[in-house]
Measured scan of single mutants.
Amino acid sequence: TFELKGKVGKVVKIAEDHYLVEVEGDKWIAYSDEKLSLGDRVMVVDVDGLKLKAKRIP
């Protein structure tokens, strides 16, 4: 999973306390310091076990 750092994905679902992000065809649980919206493009900035930390990108 460490190779996911720096990869770009898309928010495909918003849950109460996390997001579901699709990166290279796989879906991952993600969290972010900022509020994300459905369809936002994100970059993986860190990997915490099986969770990704994501940041919105333009």
Rank of each mutant, 00 (worst) to 15 (best):
H18M: 13
K51A: 10
V8M: 11
L20D: 06
I29L: 13
A54L: 15
V42E: 00
V45L: 06
K51H: 06
V45F: 03
K5M: 15
R41Q: 13
V42K: 00
E24M: 10
L52C: 03
R56F: 06
D48N: 08
V21Y: 00
V47P: 02
R41C: 13
G9K: 00
G39I: 04
V47W: 09
D26Q: 14
L20T: 10
A30H: 01
V47C: 07
V8N: 07
Y19G: 01
V21S: 00
D48R: 05
V21R: 00
T1R: 15
S37D: 12
K5A: 14
S37V: 13
D26Y: 15
S37F: 14
P58A: 12
A54G: 04
H18I: 12
G6E: 03
L52A: 02
R56C: 04
W28S: 01
V21D: 00
E22D: 09
D17S: 11
E34Q: 08
W28D: 01
E34V: 05
K7Y: 03
L20M: 12
L20G: 04
L52E: 00
D26C: 14
I14T: 11
S37E: 12
D17R: 10
D26W: 15
P58N: 10
K53F: 12
D48E: 12
K53W: 10
A30T: 12
S37R: 12
L20S: 07
K55P: 01
W28F: 07
R56E: 02
E24N: 06
K13F: 12
F2E: 15
V12I: 10
V23W: 01
A30M: 15
D17H: 10
M43K: 06
V45M: 06
V8E: 14
I14L: 14
M43Q: 09
R41L: 13
A15L: 13
A15K: 13
L50Y: 14
M43H: 04
D26A: 14
L38R: 08
F2Y: 06
I29N: 10
G39N: 13
V12A: 06
R41G: 10
D46K: 03
G9T: 02
A54D: 00
K5V: 15
D40F: 05
A15P: 03
G6K: 01
Y19T: 05
T1I: 15
Y31L: 14
E3P: 15
D46N: 03
V47K: 05
S37I: 13
K55W: 03
M43R: 04
V8Q: 10
K51Y: 05
K55V: 08
G25K: 06
G9Q: 00
K27G: 08
I29K: 09
Y31Q: 09
V12Y: 09
G39Y: 13
V44A: 03
V11N: 00
Y19K: 01
P58K: 07
R56A: 06
V42C: 07
V42T: 03
E34G: 08
E34L: 04
L36P: 02
E34A: 06
Y31S: 11
D46L: 03
D26M: 15
S37M: 12
E24K: 04
R41P: 12
V23E: 01
S37Y: 14
G25T: 06
K55Q: 13
L36E: 00
L50H: 11
P58T: 12
A15G: 09
S37W: 14
H18W: 10
V21N: 00
R56D: 01
K35G: 08
G6H: 02
K10Y: 11
I14V: 13
I29P: 09
L38C: 09
I14S: 08
K53V: 02
E16L: 13
V23Q: 01
V12Q: 05
V8G: 05
L52Y: 02
L50K: 08
V21C: 05
L38D: 06
V45N: 03
I29T: 10
Y31K: 08
K51G: 04
R56L: 10
E24P: 01
K53C: 04
G49Q: 06
D17T: 12
K55G: 06
G9W: 01
D26T: 15
V21H: 00
V12P: 00
G9L: 13
R41Y: 13
K13W: 13
V8C: 14
